[in-house]
Amino acid sequence: MTLPRPAFRLPAALALASALALSACATTPYTGPVEVTRFVAASPAGLGQGTIAVAFPDTVSNLAARAAFAQAVSAELARLGYTVVPEGTPASQTATIRTTRGPIAAAPVDRRGPVNVGVGGSTGGYGSGLGMGVGINLGGGRESPEALTTLEVRIARSGGETLWEGRSQIATGVKSPYSQTETSARTLAAGLFKDFPGGNGETVTLDAKKLQGQ
């Protein structure tokens, strides 16, 4: 009698090697924390109340990015208690918005320690040609940080006196959902105005994912 031939099975060691090879090819999207720094005037009376208009002192050629950041900041200002009026409308206060996205370059490798990353060169505004795709490879199967997106807001009275200003920034890889303009705008604005007005001169680090649910 001829016994039936057993079904072919991939040897366990070979199967494990194949799985490891596939996992090595995949990369985990890089999303850094949101770093926030804020400054508060000695006499900040009026913060969080009255009318306020948003303004962009610098030209933002990427209109989609401009709209995303204007909407994100306006939503946070309204949550704080402000009455947000259309841009260009007279108001008791003005929120001046600046936003940039620039490439991150790898710092020189120290053989005694891990690879460091930092902002390389100048930072370009949206639409300047700088942005995602200026890649570096830190290895290890994890996507490297590719770009640093920054949001700066300055709140001043109509006479020009600064009441508050802050900056939030996040480093992301090209595959991170937080590299998308609308997502990064909402996340950076949420971090910037969390626990408003914050401590004068303080710098805090926040989890980007937790800010999305705020």
Rank of each mutant, 00 (worst) to 15 (best):
S43F: 14
A91F: 09
Q169S: 14
F69W: 09
N137H: 13
K210G: 00
G140H: 02
Q180F: 12
R167S: 15
G140M: 05
I155R: 02
L47W: 10
A41P: 07
R112A: 14
P114Y: 06
R5G: 00
V73F: 05
L192P: 14
G201M: 05
P33N: 12
Q49Y: 00
T172L: 01
G191I: 09
T100G: 00
Y82K: 03
T94M: 04
A67D: 12
A45W: 07
A26W: 15
L80I: 15
Q93P: 00
T187R: 05
P29W: 12
D207Y: 05
Y178I: 00
T31K: 09
G121Q: 01
A91M: 09
P4G: 11
A68E: 11
S122G: 10
T187Y: 04
T31E: 12
T27K: 12
W164E: 01
F39T: 14
R154G: 00
C25T: 13
A7V: 13
G125S: 15
V36P: 11
E146C: 04
G201H: 05
G133H: 03
P90S: 10
R98T: 08
G88C: 10
Y30F: 15
P6W: 11
S179L: 02
T181P: 10
L16S: 02
V109H: 13
A13M: 06
A55K: 14
D195K: 12
A64R: 14
P33L: 07
A147W: 08
V34K: 09
V73Q: 06
I170P: 05
G127A: 10
R186Y: 03
V204N: 01
G118A: 14
V85K: 11
A190P: 05
A12C: 04
D207M: 02
N116K: 15
E146A: 14
G129M: 07
I104C: 00
A156H: 14
I155P: 08
K194L: 13
V40C: 09
A189M: 06
P57I: 06
T27V: 07
P11L: 11
S23T: 15
A147I: 15
G88E: 11
A107N: 10
A189W: 03
L77I: 06
T187D: 02
F8T: 03
V115P: 06
S122N: 12
E161Y: 01
V84D: 07
G129Q: 01
R154Y: 00
P33A: 12
F196H: 03
G127I: 05
V204Q: 08
L16D: 01
Y178N: 10
T100Q: 04
T83H: 13
T51N: 05
G46L: 03
